[in-house]
Simulated assay, not measured.
Amino acid sequence: MGKHWNKGKYVTIQNPQCLFFRDNVSIGKYAYFMPCCKFLGTEYHPKITIGEGTWIGIRNSFAAIYGITIGRNVLFAGYVHVTDHSHGYEDVTKPISKQPLISKGPVVIEDNCWLGFNSEILSGVHIGRNSVVAAHAVVTKDVPPYSIVAGNPAKIVKQYNFETHEWEKYKK
């Protein structure tokens, strides 16, 4: 664990050996870290890394079987959920809770991003630096750097223009 980090009350940490916090990380109340090392007999080796200066809001949750990497100075509003996996559902003869976990790969959130209230970041997603995820967005695909995404599924609504030095409406 890094130096000078703090956590709010009632933070739940499962499998702490899978968590790596850098310096000056703050974790809000009721946050939940759930790296899963074993499910239905399958072993996993997850790693959740939180970069320096990152602030995690109240009731955020992080679930991993492979990995979640969060860069420096990332800001999480409340109730954000980040996961690199889901429950399988392909075998209709079995309850979903008895099916293997599925994943499109690890999640990466680069430096200086802001994740809005109640947003969801799903498996295999890579969010580029200095991007914003709007409140209630469900991110299912990669987000380019310097982009703002919104909606379900999330789509790019603005991008930063380095020539005009302004955030501009995204034109497909």
Rank of each mutant, 00 (worst) to 15 (best):
Y32N: 03
T49D: 07
P100K: 04
T93M: 10
N15S: 07
D142K: 00
I13D: 06
T69R: 13
N112G: 04
E166V: 14
V132S: 01
G151P: 12
Q159V: 13
Y89V: 15
H126L: 08
L122K: 01
G8E: 01
Y170R: 10
K155C: 00
N130D: 08
P144S: 07
S103W: 03
P144L: 00
G41P: 07
A150S: 14
R129K: 09
T49P: 01
H85I: 03
G67Q: 02
T42M: 11
I27G: 03
I58K: 12
D91W: 09
Y44C: 06
E110Y: 06
K141L: 09
E52H: 10
N118P: 05
L75M: 11
N73H: 13
A134E: 14
V132W: 07
H45T: 11
F117M: 12
S26D: 05
V149F: 02
A150E: 12
V11A: 09
N152S: 09
I50A: 09
V25S: 07
W167T: 00
G28A: 09
N6R: 11
L40D: 04
P16W: 09
T93R: 04
K3G: 11
K7M: 14
G53M: 08
G53R: 08
N152G: 08
E90V: 15
Q159M: 09
K29S: 11
V149H: 01
R59Y: 11
T93L: 13
T93K: 07
V133N: 01
G2F: 03
G28R: 04
M34P: 06
P100R: 03
Y66A: 02
D91I: 15
I156S: 02
K155H: 11
I121F: 04
S97N: 13
N73C: 12
V11D: 02
I148N: 06
E166C: 10
N6Y: 11
T93E: 05
I68D: 00
G71H: 00
F62E: 07
G128I: 06
G128T: 04
G41F: 06
I70V: 09
H81I: 15
Q159P: 12
P153F: 02
K141R: 11
S103N: 01
K47D: 02
N24S: 07
Y10H: 13
G71N: 05
T49N: 13
F33N: 03
C113D: 02
A63W: 05
G41Q: 09
N112V: 12
L19G: 00
T54Q: 03
N6Q: 13
I13M: 14
V125M: 03
L19I: 11
E168W: 05
